[in-house]
Design a protein around this nucleic acid. Structure first.
Lengths: 143, 143
DNA sequence: ATGGGTGCAAAGGATTTGCAACATT
DNA sequence: AATGTTGCAAATCCTTTGCACCCAT
């Protein structure tokens, strides 16, 4: 049951559970599609009709501050989130804006938590380019 | 002379030179501070009094599309740019918002330009945390 | 009853767009 | 003349804030 996993993930990371927080975390743990705030809102507003975008904004920010989710800033137009907090590589398609996991690539590890006196607590590796779907489409158009 | 370097960087990357574009590129090549659009605008509006923010926005986007500069999306509140297009690691301070180069860390290389059918033409590695300056400040407050 | 959580409406801020004026070839 | 470039003003869109209400302890 993903509900219990969501509950555990909140408590383990020092976030008090509430109906909304549990629902948002459960959404992240069942949709590894790198949803934006709007995606999460649209996905839950039927289930929780009183849900507001503000709550989704606040909650996702809270999650990332507590390392309960990863905030992904790969797209310069909007932020998105990932419930998978283990390090892995993200690919961004500059054409369609999709964010894809590249589990085959090895995620980097800093040499140390302390680099030149700066304390590192988060690492993100981003690859950008054109995804296979968009590449196929543009290949077709050439004929 | 940085002017000639700026000119070359534009032409080499297929960007037609103009007064504004040269000035903006020269600014990038003399300020490795990861300036935002506003920074570049403020830095140049004395030299070019007619300069508009719109032009800075358009020009920097153009540069990054032509690989003449790197667009850095490490800060979720605003984009910044780097005239150094060789791969290196960026550190973002979550407290003061500063972006620092970590030349000591090794920048990753994808195994191939084509990963799972996706074409990769840009790689960015971001470290996030608290910078040494902010760490010192918060240490002092404890006394 | 107290403190945290939620949600509405409004504000804020970064970025883009439409379009007319301008520069350059 | 034709084409690309610039810059103002307005629009857009994402995100945050202020504040009142609500819920749970």
């Amino acid at each position: 049951m993903k509900e219990q996993e969501a509950y555990k993930k909140l408590v383990d990371n020092g976030v008090r559970p509430s109906v909304q927080r549990l629902a948002i975390m459960e959404y992240l743990l069942t949709h590894f599609t790198h949803p934006t705030v709007e995606d999460v809102y649209q996905g839950l507003c039927n289930k929780i009709p009183t849900l507001s975008r503000t709550t989704v904004y606040n909650t996702l920010r809270l999650f990332s501050e507590h390392q309960a989710a990863q905030m992904i800033t790969i797209d310069d137009h909007r932020v998105c989130y990932d419930g998978n907090t283990s390090p892995h590589v993200h690919f961004f398609c500059k054409q369609c804006g999709k964010v894809i996991d590249l589990f085959g690539e090895k995620a980097p590890m800093p040499n140390s938590r302390l680099i030149d006196g700066n304390f590192v607590d988060e690492v993100q590796l981003y690859y950008k380019g054109i995804c296979s779907d968009c590449k196929k489409k543009s290949d077709k158009q050439k004929h």
